[in-house]
């Protein structure tokens, strides 16, 4: 399966966009002090931004970056949004409230509790009316959702906006999900050969060749000091080896596990 990356969005501790992340991937020292990750998506009006869940703001912000980078209108894309753990802040709110004797739930928080809230807000903010999907694959969220995006991109011959985000785990979740910091990434994917669409300069229009092969189900080592903790804990950060590979001129094929004995093999050309 051959695809082209036309645009990239990135947001996380120490980076606010793809150029910022690429500097870290190239070995630049991380900023001495990186404050909390504070996405400010333009498509969500400032007064709504305050109330919008972090998961929504993260996904919408990186999706905006990827579309701008590619120069492709959001309404022309199909969207596949992923998250390994979903919005644990809202899960925490829901479960905490429901444990009370007379639970009174906020209706807004309830409709924001659906896994497709980020992609729902995205389609509403951009008037994007094509297919929009929301998926989860736990620790394998990134490779499996990329596979889902790739098959849709090629079967339907449409631009696919893939985005993934995971936020830090609230206290009760710490025993099962050791996520310290949020991060989000987006890729604007085109079927290979769509030369009539001009591709974004930042992504360089790198071509990816994907295949599914039996494998060891092991994650590649990723020990860049500035990003290693994020990579180890946050399911969305499992995209980092792929992003590093596309910055390298002659990267070896990358194997990302889809399960215990199956790999997504990615060759950046």
């Amino acid at each position: 399966m051959k695809l082209r990356i036309a645009g990239i969005g990135a947001l996380g501790p120490g980076f606010e966009d793809w150029p910022g992340l690429r500097a870290l991937l190239d070995g630049a020292p991380p900023p001495a002090e990186s404050g909390p990750v504070r996405p400010a998506p333009e498509g969500i009006p400032p007064r709504e931004r305050r109330r919008a869940p972090l998961s929504v703001k993260l996904a919408v912000a990186v999706a905006e970056q990827a579309c701008a980078d590619a120069g492709i209108a959001p309404a022309d894309t199909v969207s596949v949004f992923a998250s390994g753990m979903g919005d644990m802040d809202i899960t925490d709110y829901m479960c905490r409230t429901l444990a009370e004797d007379e639970p009174l739930l906020s209706p807004t928080k309830f409709h924001n509790s659906v896994h497709n809230a980020p992609v729902g807000y995205w389609t509403i903010s951009q008037d994007a009316r094509l297919s929009s999907n929301a998926v989860a694959g736990f620790t394998h969220t990134v490779p499996t959702s990329l596979l889902e995006a790739a098959t849709q991109c090629l079967a339907e011959q449409v631009p696919v906006l893939w985005a993934s985000q995971d936020i830090a785990a609230p206290a009760p979740f710490r025993d099962i999900a050791d996520i310290d910091a949020p991060c989000a990434f987006a890729l604007l994917l085109l079927p290979h050969g769509e030369d009539d669409i001009e591709v974004g300069h930042e992504a360089g229009g790198r071509v990816l060749e994907l295949s599914v092969e039996p494998g060891a189900g092991e994650w590649p080592a990723f020990d860049l000091p500035a990003l290693a903790t994020l990579y180890d804990g946050n399911p969305t950060a499992r995209l980092l080896p792929l992003l590093r590979a596309i910055t390298q001129a002659d990267a070896a094929p990358l194997r990302l596990p889809l399960g215990a004995s199956l790999d997504l093999v990615v060759q950046a050309a």
Partner: peptide, 26 residues
């Protein structure tokens, strides 16, 4: 305690090792 619980459990019960994904669009 994660959104992919049903997809992973069905694959586990059925002994399947292909790609497995949970779709959650309400």
């Amino acid at each position: 305690h994660n959104p992919h619980s049903p997809g992973a459990y069905v694959a586990h019960r059925a002994g399947l090792a292909g790609p497995q994904l949970t779709i959650s669009t309400a």
